[in-house]
């Protein structure tokens, strides 16, 4: 028996907006602790991790661990139909994930479960020299700014500032932000702007983002719900000078 009820439909909507742009299919794992998902895109450039603990839900019941494999595009199409004020209920039957949106009316969708042969990948454990928090909106603005001049983004942090910058053929752009955190080293890596943009589609998950940066290391970006019960995080492989 699996049943999860959520009053904030935006959590799923915003998470899967990002997830569905990164991976075509996912294996969600449900157990008594909550729901989680680990997925790696086809070209192994982006890793995504979603964790929604029991406490995120208004009601949560899962008697035995189960795997819920779905096509992310199909799921996203359905989630887009949820209204902000709808209660979302997730259940599963023999071959479907069932989503019910309860508002003015009760609207029910079934999404066919798919076969996924492989095991969900586990995230690599990396040691980072820096960790700092920035407002999510600043990241969102930065990618718009950088997009004017380039399709790559250089992220740099030092004791004082976090900088997003790019040098393009026709011009340059730089965004500086005083992070106000204790950082003792500086770090810089370059990323594909398109890939960063995919992760930042999850713009309603959290107001701030925790970034971990190293030199020519993957970007670790974590969005945490205020209650600490939910997390959406990403790892993005850098572009490295050849």
């Amino acid at each position: 028996m699996f049943k999860a009820v959520l009053s904030d439909s935006n959590i799923l909507k915003t998470s899967f907006d990002a997830i569905s742009s990164i991976v075509d299919e996912v294996q969600m794992q449900a157990d008594e602790e909550g729901l989680r998902l680990d997925a790696l895109d086809r070209s192994h450039i982006t890793f995504v991790h979603l964790e929604l603990k029991k406490g995120v839900f208004d009601e949560y019941q899962c008697d035995e661990p189960m795997k819920i494999n779905v096509d992310t595009e199909e799921l996203m199409k359905v989630l887009k139909r949820a209204k902000a004020e709808d209660m979302v209920e997730l259940t599963v039957d023999e071959g479907n994930l069932i989503l019910s949106f309860e508002g003015e009316a009760r609207r029910k969708f079934k999404i066919r479960l798919i076969d996924i042969e492989y095991e969900a990948p586990s995230p690599p454990q990396l040691e980072y020299p820096t960790e700092f928090e920035v407002p999510f909106s600043l990241l969102k603005d930065s990618i718009q700014d950088i997009g004017i001049v380039s399709d790559k983004i250089s992220l740099h942090v030092n004791e004082e500032k976090f900088e997003a910058s790019a040098e393009g053929e026709f011009g340059d752009a730089k965004i500086e932000y005083l992070h106000g955190e204790k950082i003792e080293e500086s770090a810089r890596s370059i990323f594909s702007l398109e890939k960063v943009k995919e992760m930042l589609k999850a713009d309603k998950f959290s107001e701030s983002a925790v970034l971990r940066l190293g030199n020519d290391m993957p970007l670790n970006l974590a969005l945490k719900m205020a209650s600490d019960e939910g997390e959406l995080s990403f790892l993005l492989a850098p572009r490295i000078e050849s």
């Binding site: 790696l40 192994h44 450039i45 492989a237 490295i240 050849s242």
Partner: peptide, 12 residues
């Protein structure tokens, strides 16, 4: 000129 790396190099 940089090139896109994959996470595989960092997975181990």
């Amino acid at each position: 000129q940089e090139k896109q790396t994959s996470l595989d190099a960092f997975f181990n």
